[in-house]
Write a protein that binds this DNA or RNA. Sequence first.
RNA 1: GGGGGCGUAGCUCAACAGGUAGAGCAAGAGACUUUUAAUCUCUAGGUAGUGGGUUCGAGUCCCACCGCCCUCACCA
Length: 456
Amino acid sequence: MGEAGPVVRIAGRLESWRPKGKVGFGHLEDATGRIQIYLRADQLGEAWNLVPLLDLDDHLGITGRLMRTRAGEITVRATAVELLAKSLRPLPRPKREVLEDGTVRSHGGVADPEFRTRQRYADLAVHPEVREVFRLRSRVVTRIRSFLDQRDFLEVETPVLQTLYGGAAARPFVTHHNALDLPLYLRIADELYLKRLIVGGLERVYEIGHDFRNEGMDRAHNPEFTMLELYQAYADYHDMMELAEALVADLVREASAGGSRLTRGGVELDFTRPFRRVRFVEGIREGSGLDVLTASEDDLRRRLREAGAPPEEASSWAGAKLLDEMFAAFLEPRLVQPTFVVDYPKPISPLAKVHRDDPRLTERFELLVQGREYANAYSELNDPDDQRARFEDQLRQRAAGNEEAQPFDADYIRALEYGMPPTGGMGVGIDRLVMLLADQPSIRDVILFPSMRPED
RNA sequence: GGGGGCGUAGCUCAACAGGUAGAGCAAGAGACUUUUAAUCUCUAGGUAGUGGGUUCGAGUCCCACCGCCCUCACCA
């Protein structure tokens, strides 16, 4: 029975406690796992007086010899017990039943998703698998940094509080600076500051940080979320595609113990390079039989109605909206395996550089997996005159009531006037990427403290 | 913002043509020197999310509000 095992000192939470007269068995749990403890009055002496006062979830320090019970479980037979910290409120633990075939069945526990996100501390304390999701998240971010650092990218920090916001179409959060008596905006994107750094000669930069968008929340959106943006001088969207492919394949290796496949929602996804590439226009033509660049808007609307779009709504669609709908109906759903959709039409890509071979298109791609977007990249617009014209267009849209139109950023134009080299840029939503890698269905499952209404 | 669902003890869940609430775990007291969903005895714990209404009587029906979830729209 291994009475003479080595002496060990352990610490952890009291996860279970089964008192039995002048002895008691329980399990102590820490981040690395759980182990049984065996407390005996005749071994503990004075310290036994502490035992009746123990509560589940107390933090204990135990010293004792390792032994094996009749049932064969490795156990610490305590010679000393120390109360390290008290638990006044029991955690909502499930009871674990080990069945004869070795499977573990849980009884009780917390099921309420509201409880789990409001009291994330309790959720984490009770669910090792939730802790594992956030460990993976941390490994993913670390891996992104080392991937980019190896390629001579410089990690930088740009303002979160901005006097002008831009770089995306979204409504900002507004706050106020008392000393300057100025409104300030929480950034909706890092883009314009990072590109200023490209002008400044920091030729490869990236930032991982929170962006804030004052918009709706759902399973894929949280008001603050984590974004990776990176910019590389003397590069274009082809270089960005190479980079995206290498980065994502690297992260899949991290999440799959060295493999190149993930099974998500029962679907096996293969991230072996190269990923499939589909031209926006050709992909839609394959799905719909129509070329969105040459077909009339009437034909596009008719085709969408045939495919089941609500007729009344469909007849109001035009321009960029129509292109989006064609993409959503005839290409996006077919893109299950990792795929680069490339060369988006100009009307739906206002921030991208015009395509070198076709003025109707832009040098842009998105990486899609299971119909979801994971990266968005361009050959960056670096012509100050064109940029000025686009800001002016945004101003007109703003005047027409589009609250998401971007303000005119004269300082950014000034930066471009000094000459920005041709640059490739890319944005990757970290939360959604972690959802993919950790196989979690909601953004709330990969953000430790997602936004919620207050309880009172 | 539209539609749908849910909200009963700290946690997981019950009940009943609408008749004034019950169990397991957790908690408190006690028994038990190899237990492991320990077991056994006992105790306490709920103005049923909030506020109205219908009714002799409402957790149960109706309305409003609050919160969460799903879904559509919007949004990258």
